[in-house]
């Protein structure tokens, strides 16, 4: 019983609002930092901020993989950082949904909302595999 009370107190400090708030905040901050670094790096190297490169139709996971493959090439490093920035931005709401599924399932044991967020997660996963 004692143990339970302690656990409940801990729940007060870490709740869903805090969890979601920080996932979103950290995701956006990392993404913004990467985009800034990418742009500055590019500017330092070429003295301009014009670089347009389209990605020829690929799904999110192919995009991430092709980005990671660029690591070895020095010439494309600013571009690699930018792509990672975009990738992390896209992962932010995705991770938020995934975390919500776990929160509803494990902490709140709310089956209704576990099901709802689980559905959202499945549709998003499907959409990230589109091409």
């Amino acid at each position: 019983m004692d143990h339970r009370v302690k656990k409940d107190k801990k729940v007060e400090h870490f709740d869903m609002e805090i969890m979601i708030g920080y996932i979103l905040l950290v995701g956006v901050l990392i993404s913004a930092a990467l985009l800034t670094i990418g742009l500055i790096w590019h500017w330092a190297r070429w003295g301009n901020l014009r670089f347009e490169h389209s990605i020829v139709g690929m799904n999110f996971f192919e995009f991430i993989l092709s980005t990671l493959r660029q690591v070895s090439s020095h010439a494309t490093r600013p571009r690699f950082i930018l792509n990672m920035g975009i990738g992390i931005l896209m992962l932010t709401p995705f991770v938020r949904v995934l975390a919500s599924v776990f929160y509803f399932a494990l902490k709140e044991r709310n089956w209704k909302y576990t099901l709802f967020t689980g559905f959202v997660f499945c549709v998003l996963t499907y959409s990230l595999f589109l091409r």
């Binding site: 993404s31 913004a32 985009l35 800034t36 990418g38 742009l39 901020l49 014009r50 670089f51 347009e52 490169h53 389209s54 990605i55 020829v56 139709g57 690929m58 799904n59 999110f60 995009f63 571009r79 930018l82 792509n83 920035g85 975009i86 931005l89 896209m90 709401p93 995705f94 549709v123 998003l124 959409s127 990230l128 589109l130 091409r131």
Partner: peptide, 23 residues
């Protein structure tokens, strides 16, 4: 995000252009 994944798959998102806009 759902919309973005469709546009990304269509090759319509240009990270060089998206970066200053996002920031």
């Amino acid at each position: 995000l759902a919309g973005t994944s469709v546009y990304l798959a269509a090759g319509m998102i240009d990270p060089g252009l998206a970066a200053p806009i996002i920031l």
